[in-house]
């Protein structure tokens, strides 16, 4: 009796060869998935190791001087932080209204056919490489928008044009995440509002928008994180490749964290000679990494904490 049951169980287990194969396959897939953790660990280790050496070599006090001139050994983190702040700020002033407006229209007002036509176009914009937008930023955005409406006498390369370019780049991302959030609001909420006699506008502003607020805030934060990390637009349109004084003037050339990294990178072999200038790359990279990681984690938290279960 027990023997028969044991035999049946053995039969259910299947052939040892198949089970061994199953274990091997599972192991391979796990190894592939674990590689992403190895990549993260390598990023963190590389950044921290080189950044610590850099700070050790130049001393903490030297991170607080006037201006960012790596070739002359002047590394003022404030300068490039302010540049990043200016570019990100201008970028979000462009991307938040455009992206959220587009998202509200697509999710609440657009008829299905229009939506089906316009959404792919927005996705195509999201696919434009940043290098192309960088060229566009100084060839068109600067003369037609920044110089004409914002500055009057803008320099050929300036932070304003870089900021608007970054904003254009980030807009589809903000729109896409915010639209997903608003479409996730169930129809019954809108129908409840209509049942009480609310207009479409009041329903959108007072019901749908608040219900989707976590996703909308997350969209803006993710957009911000992307804007901070955007490199090529600033490297091309921001100017100041050699270095920059501490300045928040968006009509003038300036340096952001990412722009500084690109400038150091093209310096190529000259940079190789000066060890501290080379290692400053990793230091700036570490600051950038922590900043964007913090924002991404924050947006994830907000989505999870404020999300309502409908």
């Amino acid at each position: 009796m027990s023997n028969a049951a044991g035999g049946l169980l053995l039969e259910l287990e299947g052939s040892p060869a198949r089970r061994r194969k199953e274990r091997i396959v599972r192991g391979i897939f796990f190894a592939l998935a674990a590689m992403s953790v190895v990549i993260s660990a390598t990023i963190v280790l590389a950044l921290i190791q080189e950044a610590v050496q850099f700070v050790g070599a130049i001393g903490v006090g030297d991170l607080w001087q006037r201006g960012w001139f790596p070739r002359r050994g002047i590394f003022d983190v404030r300068t490039i932080l302010v540049g990043t702040l200016v570019v990100t700020g201008i970028g979000m002033l462009v991307a938040a209204p455009l992206g959220l407006g587009a998202a509200v229209y697509l999710s609440e007002y657009a008829r299905p056919r229009i939506r089906k036509l316009l959404k792919p176009i927005l996705e195509i914009i999201a696919g434009i490489p940043s290098i192309v937008l960088g060229v566009f930023a100084f060839s068109w955005i600067n003369p037609q928008i920044v110089d004409r409406f914002l500055c009057g006498d803008a320099s050929f390369f300036n932070l304003g044009a870089a900021g608007v370019g970054v904003g254009v780049l980030v807009t589809p991302l903000v729109a896409s995440i915010a639209e997903d959030a608003m479409r996730a609001v169930p129809m019954s909420l809108r129908e409840g509002a209509y049942g009480l006699g609310a207009r479409k506008r009041s329903t959108t502003v007072k019901i749908v928008f608040p219900a989707a607020i976590s996703g909308i805030v997350a969209a803006v934060i993710v957009g911000m994180s992307r804007a901070i990390g955007e490199t090529m637009v600033v490297a091309l349109a921001g100017g100041a490749t050699g270095g920059s004084l501490f300045s928040a003037d968006y009509c003038q050339p300036g340096q952001t964290m990412t722009g500084a990294m690109a400038a150091l990178a093209i310096g190529g072999d000259q940079v190789k000679g000066d060890v501290s200038a080379f290692q400053s790359l990793y230091f700036v990279g570490l600051v950038l990494f922590l900043l964007t990681l913090g924002l991404n984690v924050l947006s994830g938290r907000i989505v999870r904490r404020v999300r309502k279960k409908y």
């Binding site: 990023i43 990390g229 490199t231 990494f289 964007t292």
Partner: peptide, 15 residues
């Protein structure tokens, strides 16, 4: 994986 997707491309250059 989700956090890696948000890491700026220039940091991958450093990696």
């Amino acid at each position: 994986v989700r956090n890696l997707a948000g890491v700026p491309s220039v940091v991958y250059g450093l990696l």
